[in-house]
């Protein structure tokens, strides 16, 4: 049976836009979380116990995801700025998108090593 609603088959530009929205929302949610944990700074023991939580593997993986969201959002933002200001960038927007996505991916992998390594070596 046919689905009641179908997906519009846009090309890379549509997915660049969707991913930009999603990563933007995630980064915003993280900032809320960040404000909450920084606001506990007045009581150091609460602050420290919260920050111990960040050492577990799930929150470290979350941070890797956050790093990707931040990098993608920043780099794709630059792509949109390029499209807005440089008439030539628009002719190769797909290439620029794939470059920015790959760059975000590579930088996330590098960052992941630094974020995850302490968990495995035990040197938190």
């Amino acid at each position: 049976m046919s689905p009641s609603s179908t997906m519009y088959k846009g090309k890379t530009g549509q997915w660049a836009f969707v991913l930009h929205r999603i990563t933007g929302f995630l980064v915003f949610m993280f900032i809320l979380l960040h404000i909450v944990d920084v606001s506990t700074l007045n009581s150091p023991h609460i602050y420290n116990s919260i920050h111990k939580l960040y050492g577990n593997i799930f929150l470290r993986l979350f941070e890797v995801g956050l790093l990707f969201a931040l990098l993608y959002h920043a780099l794709n933002g630059l792509r949109v700025v390029m499209i807005d200001f440089f008439p030539k960038a628009i002719k190769n927007e797909k290439g620029v998108f794939l470059f920015m996505l790959s760059l975000a991916g590579v930088m996330t992998l590098v960052g992941a090593v630094y974020i995850l390594k302490p968990f495995f070596t035990g040197k938190v």
């Binding site: 090309k11 530009g13 549509q14 836009f17 008439p87």
Partner: peptide, 21 residues
């Protein structure tokens, strides 16, 4: 928001996003 769907969809081949920019 430069999603380029318009440019892909135009049956006349108009570079719509470029015109908007």
């Amino acid at each position: 928001r430069t999603s380029f769907n318009c440019t892909e969809a135009c049956p006349r081949g108009i570079k719509v996003t470029q015109a908007i920019e």
